[in-house]
Every structure is written in C-alpha cells, then in structure tokens.
Amino acid sequence: MFYTLVKIIHLLCACVVIGYLIYDVFIFSHFKKNRSEVEFIKLKRELLKPSALILGLAFLLLLCSGAYLASFYLGGELGWLESSFQQILVLKISVVGLLFVFTPISFFYILVLKKSDPMRKFYHHLALLICLIALIFAKLMFLF
C-alpha cells in the first residue's frame, strides 16, 4: 500500500515540475515579447513567487520518492544492470543527475568569476528537456 502511495506522489510531483517548466519556458516567452525586460522580470517574480515553495517541495518529493522506488528495482540480489528495466532505470537516473550540473556551474560564474552566468536564461529549457527525456525513459522501462 505504501509503495502505491509513493508511486502516486512521484507521478503527481513529476506533473507539477514538468508543468511548471512548460509554463516557464512557453507561456512566459509570450509575456516577454510584449514587455520591457524590467517589466517582464517584475511580472515573472510576482507570478512565480507563490509557486516557488510548491515547486521546491514537489522537486524534493520527486527525488525522494524516485530514490525510494528505485530501491525496489536496483541493488542487492537484483543487481544493477541485469535487466532491460534496470538498464533504462539507471539511464533515467543518470539523465536526471544532469539537473545537478547546472548549480555548480552557476555558482562558479557568480562566486569565482564574479560574473553573471551566461547560461542562466537556458536552464529551464534544459531542465524541461531533461525531464521529458526522463519521462520517456520512465515509460520505456515498463515496456520491457
């Protein structure tokens, strides 16, 4: 029963995270075309301020529930790359791990180089792409 609940939480959190990224990448691009940079940033902060807590919590729950669910399929007597399911799952986890490459790069630019990060405006585009690839792998896992 608990496993099923965690699976549902995982799916709902994935919907929230991907939905947020789609909104940020596609919907806000429309607002950006019709406003100055200063107006756009102010509008975006105002609209997204309440969603930051929800997104952060959903992302954290997505990672935690994913780790819990993966523990049922990897390691121990099951091995790591014994089946197609496991191979795709490890590939999915590796792809999701790419999300954590952006933060150190950003900190390097800001803290070490004392410059703004030139890739910052593309992070949500890349995160959306990574999430969609992970979603495709999630569906492929259950085909094998």
Rank of each mutant, 00 (worst) to 15 (best):
K7G: 13
M1V: 06
K121E: 03
F40A: 07
D24E: 13
Y68L: 11
L98N: 01
I9Q: 02
I136H: 08
I18R: 04
M119G: 00
C131N: 09
A58M: 03
K114L: 08
L12W: 09
A52C: 06
M141P: 04
H30E: 12
A67H: 09
R35T: 12
K115T: 06
A134Y: 05
E77F: 13
V101S: 00
L111T: 09
L61V: 02
G75V: 08
A127C: 06
I9S: 05
A127T: 00
V95G: 01
F85D: 07
K33C: 07
F142G: 07
K49G: 08
F26N: 08
I88T: 11
K121W: 00
E37W: 09
V90Q: 09
I41G: 09
Y123T: 00
S71L: 08
S65D: 05
H124V: 00
I110D: 10
H10N: 10
H10Q: 06
H125I: 03
L140M: 15
K114H: 14
L89I: 04
F108D: 07
K114R: 15
G97K: 03
V16I: 15
I27C: 11
S51I: 14
L5Y: 12
L11F: 14
A14T: 04
F100E: 05
I27R: 09
Y109I: 03
L12F: 13
L53R: 14
L69R: 02
G75W: 05
I133K: 00
L60W: 10
L12S: 10
G97P: 04
V16S: 06
L21T: 00
K92T: 01
G76V: 07
H125N: 07
L53Q: 11
S84G: 15
R35D: 09
V17S: 01
F85C: 07
Y23R: 11
Y73N: 12
H30R: 14
A52V: 12
C13D: 05
V95Q: 04
I27H: 12
L111S: 14
T4I: 12
Y68S: 08
L11Y: 11
I41E: 15
L78Y: 11
L74V: 02
F72E: 10
F108A: 14
L91F: 13
F144Y: 14
L61D: 02
M119W: 11
N34D: 13
L12T: 06
L61P: 02
V38E: 15
I88H: 03
G75A: 10
L55C: 04
I88R: 07
G76S: 10
P118C: 07
K33V: 11
L57A: 14
M119Y: 11
K7E: 12
F85L: 15
